[in-house]
């Protein structure tokens, strides 16, 4: 433990209203503490700058998964375990469930929350790419009211986001589409479990008669924020999933991502793997089985 524990303070307001009042009173002074699975790592390493914390863990208003005909709405405190066990999410939002299943280990899945994953704003987080391809919206609440914002665009730059010092993330809404879609999610971590992503890829597509009607692609760990890849999507939308389209999409994606070298991986590796995963996603849209001979993975410049 490299932190001076007596310097830290944690309060546990009785309900959301009290929590928001506290935050309104001293904006920015109180740091939300949900599952603590990101914060405790910093505490242990002596790298937790905030000293005053507001526990959210028991706030009922931020819990639960609600299903309506048009959307599934998840409280910000929804844990990974709750996500991956939910039948509607399994059916309609499988990328989110797979991301949850591959997050940390069981202990982290029981304690870590979606709200925390979003607000921690790591470009390597595993749920955000899934949330991006499912067009998630966030409800942000403060003592003075609430606003809904599209998740896309929420993260403006590295660790920066559209969240005011007096606001909490309250809920995450996933619109239900009601049409069959193809989903592809792949986390490439430093090992098979308990890993931080080197590349994480999520894609959904509606394919009709060999033509991409609609597509959404998002990646993690390849830019300062998780990235929805609009240019790549534009190249694909309305086109048949033939090889020339794949190549064009790969070229677009190569221009869209901005991976770096760090001690987990290299820019080169991240770029290659991103393009390989895009190719496989598109093949899977065509129904090509993954283990078939298929085209070779992408190696070009």
């Amino acid at each position: 433990m490299r932190s001076c524990l007596p310097d830290y303070e944690l309060v546990a307001p009785a309900n959301l209203r009290e929590a928001l009042a506290l935050m309104a009173g001293e904006p920015g002074a109180w740091k939300p503490f949900a599952g603590g699975t990101d914060l405790m790592v910093l505490l242990e390493a002596g790298k937790l700058p905030h000293k005053r914390f507001l526990s959210l863990w028991h706030l009922r208003e931020l819990k639960g998964i609600e299903v309506s005909p048009t959307a599934v709405t998840l409280g910000a405190l929804t844990t990974y375990t709750e996500v991956l066990r939910h039948p509607v999410l399994q059916q309609e939002f499988p990328c989110l469930c797979q991301g949850a299943r591959e997050t940390g280990g069981v202990a982290t899945q029981n304690r870590g929350t979606l709200g925390g994953n979003i607000a921690n704003a790591s470009p390597a987080a595993d749920s955000p790419p899934a949330l991006l391809v499912y067009d998630a919206e966030l409800e942000l609440v403060s003592a003075t009211g609430s606003r809904w914002v599209p998740y896309r665009g929420f993260h403006s730059s590295y660790k920066q986001m559209d969240l005011r010092p007096n606001e909490l993330i309250a809920r995450i809404r996933l619109p239900r589409v009601g049409r069959p879609r193809r989903h592809y999610y792949r986390k490439v971590g430093t090992r098979k479990a308990q890993a931080i992503s080197k590349v994480v890829f999520a894609g959904v597509a509606e394919v009709e008669g060999g033509v991409v009607r609609d597509v959404r692609i998002a990646l993690g760990s390849v830019a300062p924020t998780v990235l929805r890849c609009a240019k790549t999507e534009a190249v694909l939308r309305g086109h048949p999933t033939v090889e020339s389209t794949v190549a064009a999409a790969q070229a677009a994606l190569a221009g869209e991502i901005a991976p770096i070298d760090d001690f987990r991986s290299t820019a080169k590796y991240r770029r290659r793997v991103s393009l390989n995963l895009l190719a496989v996603f598109l093949q899977s849209c065509l129904g090509t089985v993954e283990q078939g001979p298929g085209p070779e993975p992408w190696y070009g410049a």
Partner: peptide
């Protein structure tokens, strides 16, 4: 396959279990 000590000027910079990767049971 996994364990890579990242050196910078003689210092191990990945001295955390999140960055110094040992295999899990799944590996």
């Amino acid at each position: 396959l996994f364990e890579n000590v990242v050196w910078q000027e003689g210092r191990m910079v990945n001295s955390q279990m999140t960055n110094y990767i040992i295999p899990t049971a799944a590996d």
